[in-house]
Amino acid sequence: AGLHPIRNSATHGAMVMSLDDSGPAKAAGLHVGDIIVTWNGEAVHGPRELIRKLGPDSAGTTVTLGILSGGAERDVSITIGEKPLS
C-alpha cells in the first residue's frame, strides 16, 4: 500500500493513497483514503513508523490495524505479505 502522513489536531497516522490489487492490504479490506491510526493497539504517527515495524521477519505474521474510514473507527486484521523484489 502507498501511504502518506496525516497530522492534524485530532488525527495522526498514515493515509492509504494506493493499493496493490493483489496485495494483503486490499484483501484485508483497506480502501484508498483510510487512515491507519494504530498497530496492535499502539498509536501510529506516520508511514515511516509502519515501515519500521515491517522488518524482515514480519512476513506471515498477523496484526490488527486501527483504521479511520469515512469518519468511523474499525479494526482490520491483516497478514503481512512478503515484500516484492522489485
Results as ranks from 00 to 15, higher is better:
residue 65 L to K: 09
residue 43 A to Q: 14
residue 16 V to I: 15
residue 70 G to L: 06
residue 49 E to D: 13
residue 8 N to Q: 10
residue 43 A to S: 13
residue 43 A to F: 09
residue 41 G to F: 12
residue 77 S to P: 08
residue 82 E to V: 04
residue 12 H to K: 13
residue 76 V to A: 03
residue 63 V to F: 04
residue 57 D to C: 02
residue 57 D to S: 00
residue 75 D to V: 00
residue 38 T to C: 01
residue 30 L to Q: 03
residue 37 V to N: 00
residue 19 L to W: 08
residue 17 M to I: 12
residue 73 E to M: 06
residue 6 I to G: 03
residue 2 G to K: 10
residue 61 T to N: 08
residue 48 R to C: 00
residue 56 P to A: 08
residue 53 K to I: 05
residue 15 M to K: 12
residue 7 R to S: 12
residue 86 S to I: 11
residue 67 I to Y: 02
residue 28 A to C: 07
residue 31 H to L: 15
residue 49 E to L: 02
residue 32 V to Q: 15
residue 81 G to R: 01
residue 30 L to S: 04
residue 75 D to G: 06
residue 37 V to E: 03
residue 62 T to F: 00
residue 58 S to F: 04
residue 77 S to W: 09
residue 28 A to E: 04
residue 44 V to F: 12
residue 74 R to S: 09
residue 77 S to L: 12
residue 63 V to A: 09
residue 66 G to W: 02
residue 54 L to I: 03
residue 52 R to I: 09
residue 39 W to L: 11
residue 59 A to R: 00
residue 58 S to P: 03
residue 6 I to D: 03
residue 72 A to F: 11
residue 29 G to Y: 11
residue 22 S to I: 10
residue 56 P to K: 05
residue 66 G to D: 01
residue 4 H to W: 13
residue 8 N to Y: 10
residue 33 G to K: 14
residue 58 S to R: 00
residue 37 V to T: 15
residue 62 T to Q: 09
residue 22 S to L: 12
residue 70 G to T: 06
residue 75 D to K: 07
residue 85 L to F: 10
residue 50 L to S: 02
residue 30 L to M: 09
residue 52 R to Y: 12
residue 51 I to G: 05
residue 86 S to L: 13
residue 79 T to Q: 07
residue 14 A to M: 10
residue 32 V to G: 06
residue 39 W to Q: 06
residue 75 D to N: 14
residue 78 I to M: 15
residue 53 K to A: 04
residue 73 E to Y: 05
residue 74 R to M: 08
residue 57 D to Q: 05
residue 41 G to T: 08
residue 34 D to F: 10
residue 35 I to Q: 13
residue 75 D to C: 03
residue 60 G to T: 00
residue 3 L to H: 07
residue 65 L to M: 11
